[in-house]
Design a protein around this nucleic acid. Sequence first.
DNA 1: GTCGGGTACTTTTTT
DNA 2: AGTACCCGAC
Length: 722
Amino acid sequence: MPRLEDLNPVQRAAVEATDGPVLILAGAGSGKTRVITHRIAYLVSRRKATPDEILAVTFTNKAAAEMKERAARLAATAEAPAWVSTFHAACARILRAEAPLLGFERNFSIIDEADSLALLRRLLEEARLPEAGHAEAVRARLEQAKNDGVSPEELAQGAVDPRQAQLAEIYRLYQQRLRAANAMDFADLLLMTCELFRARPEVLARWQARARYLLIDEFQDTNRSQYLLVKALSAQSGNLCAVGDEDQSIYRWRGADIRIILDFERDFLAARVFALEQNYRSSKMILAAAYAVIRNNRERKPKRLWTANSAGEPVRCFTGVTERDEANFIAREIERLVEAGLARPSEIVVFYRVNAQSRVLEEALSARRIPYVVVGGLRFYDHREVKELLAYLRAALNPRDVMSLGRALAAPPRGVGAKTLALAGRVAARDGLSPLEALAKLEGAAHVPLGAAREAAAFSRWMVGLGARAPAAPVQALIEEVVSRSGFLEYLDRQADGAARRRNLAELFSSAAAFDAEHGPGGLESFLERAALAADGRPPEETGGRVALMTLHTSKGLEYRAVFMAGMEEDLFPHARSAEEPTELEEERRLCYVGMTRARELLYLTKTLSRELYGQRSESSPSRFLAEIGDDLMVRLGAVPAARLRERPAAQTYVDYADGQLPQPVGGGLAVGSRVVHHSFGLGVVRRLEGRGENAKAWVSFDGRGLKLLMLKFAALRPVAD
DNA sequence: GTCGGGTACTTTTTT
DNA sequence: AGTACCCGAC
């Protein structure tokens, strides 16, 4: 039985408001998860709902796991836990059950971004529609359309120029191709579920009954298609509880729409709103600094967190000469905190804006023998050798999945390449077979050498057999068979970093073993689904006494005693791509706010004078967010001798120098920050200069035209007076 | 047709 | 630094 006395009055009211639309505005550190888990337990204990009539949706696997665990602990009964899952996993579950209604088979594959991109590349080439744009750009736009809940037909109807019409056509072909492969991409999981609910009211009704109490976490990060889904699911019961904080909306680039939370009260006129404004996490100083940043945003509800915690220490701002200097400071300081007993390694985190920043930090920590883990970044299931091995299993399970088929056929190479596979696809379409089956029927076909045809046939028969054994076999045994029969290990050993790849394979093997132990044999389908939806091997909270390193995006929902935020520099944070557009700048600011509010007691903001990133060194200037915090909440630290600072020319142009050397101004009158004019883009500001001589390039943000990278030898940029 | 090696090119954040 | 694409060799 949940103890409501453990909650403050607003939290308690939010828990007790069980029915109808409810919006819980949960500021950072305000006990959000506590409220959600109490709410679930309360619904059950009051017999408002059985656990399996509650659907709680979160954004990440991490959050889902935590909520599930805490809710189970609260309920303290043996009852089945509520259905807690991510949006994508919930949709996958619904779609597996209803796939035939949409013209898919239940064993459909879920493809990742890399597969989606590869498919699109092939499509763009075949369809001869190069004007639609570069594959990367097309993929992003298709994803956006899907996230907005727009179908190919709707996109075609809305097209006002040939370019958009072509995009719509690509969209149509892409969907057709996916359907042929019995596959969906991430965005499809949401979109197809929406479509299903729109087209089949009786199916929707079934799921509405299955989710009589709907709870959406991180509501500020929902996109249009997620919102439509939520609205449809709750339409019957009306019991929709949205929990979020617009100040922590950081996924606009992935289709999240902050207006959804801002307009909630207009959308649901009967909505009751609870604002959790007491922060239990951070010191007064940290909260004040975070507020000093976020108050500069226009697109937010006026509100301010308060805390009964102590005043605490001021924010520390360190300036290093280079990123190595910055990293060394962080490592030294972590060492000091640990030795002084101010924090244990597991209570310390280092945040950065882009993954590329982690390398130097890792080196500095290793040098001081400080144990650390990098959370996120390249996910385990994204390693090439892991994807290759899983491709065998996916192809065996879904013989129409040509993307997995191609990947498996090439690892190790068997003399059967893209052309032969394409031919198999045509044979399959002609004879009503799956592409995998068609591979066995290529002997005698034109342009297929006999050896390749036999190889393909043997492969095909093996894989068909593997697929037949899958429903009863442990995943581990299937992997074992693939490894031994394909010569996978020998193939890995022929590669440069074979040892590391072998290790990853071993890890895959043991995670399969663990999965079998939990689920019993025949779990291949759910094993693959978990891999596709990036349920990363082990839970990241198991940092085992180590300092955590992660991007600011990954930091959401976590808290640490001591927080370091590295790279507080213009063009890195806020990122250069977001500096122009006010809405994007506001998102960067929210990201900064999210990072700062992770800290309980100590907050360090660090920056450099000069940073090398992606193999280019350039001059850096302090992030505007530092100026927003101001000096009364901050203590400045710096290893930079004042004399050296004075030596630096006032308007620094670009630099290209080895670590530790002094910057040398170069460049034909162009400087970072100077205004220039371009013959077609018009007026702009130089954001960054890189390269030398022939290769000199400039990032220039043009008024209303965005950020452009220009080769100076081609683009005549003329400086203009301010 | 397939495969391996060289070169050129692009870097935000992730379910 | 890592990947994608191009090219020449089999």
